[in-house]
């Protein structure tokens, strides 16, 4: 006969230990990925206002026109913002919780497009909006056409 007792903790735990590999097609954006392998950063340009965008877009989100021109964005940019994460967060590449020592920066490139990256300067006090940063790349043979082919950005 069942005892009429309330369980102390009526929850049941499940874990989902599995590794899934997604193979996403990049489509027209593969041009950007190919340029990264060559150590170049390129962006699409809007024919209406000349704004360059990363991620590259086949259509300008603002003017709704086709963007066919690709523009080299150079190797340097000006710092827009920088911040450091002070607590462990998941690394989506490994699935592990880890500490993050390097700041995440937003940069406006010489060509006008903007992108995020890591920064070699770990003291955020020294990172002021407007200062110039330069891309530091993985060795050519290690590049995979991913945004993290740029290892980090260093102050010039």
């Amino acid at each position: 006969m069942l005892k009429k007792e309330e369980p102390q903790d009526p929850s049941v735990a499940f874990r989902y230990p599995r590794v899934i590999t997604y193979k996403h097609s990049l489509g027209y954006q593969s041009k950007f990925a190919h340029a990264l392998k060559m150590g170049r950063i390129i962006a699409t340009k809007c024919p209406v206002d000349g704004r360059c965008t990363i991620p590259p877009r086949i259509v300008c989100p603002m003017h709704h026109v086709k963007q066919t021109e690709w523009v080299d964005q150079g190797q340097r940019g000006k710092l827009l913002s920088a911040f450091k994460i002070n607590f462990p967060m998941f690394d989506s590449r490994t699935g592990d919780l880890k500490s993050w020592e390097t700041p995440i920066v937003s940069i406006e490139l010489e060509g006008g497009a903007r992108m995020d990256g890591w920064c070699s300067e770990t003291d955020t006090e020294k990172l002021k909006p407007g200062m110039v940063l330069e891309a530091v790349w993985r060795p050519a043979e290690e590049r995979q056409g991913r945004v993290d082919d740029i290892l980090y950005w260093k102050p010039v």
Partner: peptide, 27 residues
């Protein structure tokens, strides 16, 4: 506590979350 964000190729290298989103916005 983070993950790849909306699109792994473009945002996956960073630990994206509402915290990082609003740190950037507030900065």
């Amino acid at each position: 506590r983070g993950g790849g964000g909306a699109n792994e190729y473009w945002t996956g290298q960073f630990p994206m979350s509402p915290i990082t989103n609003f740190a950037r916005r507030t900065y």
